[in-house]
């Protein structure tokens, strides 16, 4: 028995990467066929921006101070939409059970889902940013801003993937995810808004260092914690 098991555990680590990307590929392929998720997230984001436009009277003056807040609120809302959908399709079509039965490490499932969720979020952000730039005549295509958005989205999806795996298994399902996610994700949203706001206001790099450090710390801490806890969430 022991000798039988040995190679399996040794093989687990090289196949982790392969398994992870197999899951990512599966999600992206399914998405590219229907564009269900991305189109929903995208239309939702644009609607949120339009609502903000009227709610906040986004004229030139106001825009300068609230652009970062509007963007991140939009990303956060669209993010929960995507996270919910991506997990509940797994659950509804019974794919989750299939994945759990597959002889892969559970962490591969977590990383696979997290990376594909991140990819969806980034695709939506990549479309929202130019649209916002055109609509409001601000240049959001800056490498430093994109870096901040990337870091923020990583932290958000790292926790969001874990929590959405939990919320789809409850009776209230979709309703529960934002309630669980927002209070825990406050640090990452705050730091992202702060960093993007300072960047857009043309601040020095040293001023952005604090929120940037927080983002990096949050990402590292929550990726490792979520990855360790994921096993307990999908266990059946």
């Amino acid at each position: 028995m022991v000798t039988n098991k040995q190679p399996v555990t040794r093989n687990a680590s090289p196949s982790l990467l392969k398994a992870t990307f197999a899951i990512v590929r599966k999600d992206l392929a399914a998405e590219l066929r229907s564009f269900e998720l991305i189109s929903a997230m995208l239309v939702f984001s644009l609607l949120v921006i339009i609502i903000f436009n009227f709610a906040l009277e986004l004229d030139v003056k106001v825009r300068q101070s609230v652009t970062a807040g509007v963007l991140w609120t939009t990303f956060a809302f669209a993010g929960t939409l995507g996270l919910n959908r991506s997990m509940s399709t797994e659950k509804d079509r019974g794919c989750m059970d299939g994945l759990l039965l597959a002889p892969v490490d559970r962490s591969a499932i977590y990383f696979g889902k997290a990376i594909s969720n991140l990819a969806f979020m980034l695709i939506v952000e990549a479309i929202v940013l130019p649209v916002y730039s055109i609509l409001y005549n601000v240049n959001l295509f800056r490498l430093d801003l994109i870096g901040v958005i990337l870091l923020g989205s990583i932290g958000y999806t790292a926790v969001g993937t874990l929590l959405s795996a939990m919320s789809v298994q409850t009776r209230t399902r979709e309703v529960l995810l934002p309630i669980l996610l927002f209070p825990v994700a406050i640090p990452v949203l705050l730091a992202s808004v702060k960093a993007s706001g300072s960047l857009l206001a043309g601040a020095e790099f040293s001023e952005i260092l604090t929120p940037l450090n927080i983002l990096i710390v949050y990402d590292i801490v929550f990726i490792s914690v979520a990855f360790m806890l994921f096993d307990h969430v999908v266990e059946e």
Partner: peptide, 29 residues
Amino acid sequence: MLRQGIDDPEKRARFGAVYTLLGGISAPI
């Protein structure tokens, strides 16, 4: 709210533990 939505006591306990842990890390940050 999370606990209320789960019927299986064992799963309820597991999810509860995971969430308190996440909250416990996030609140100081």
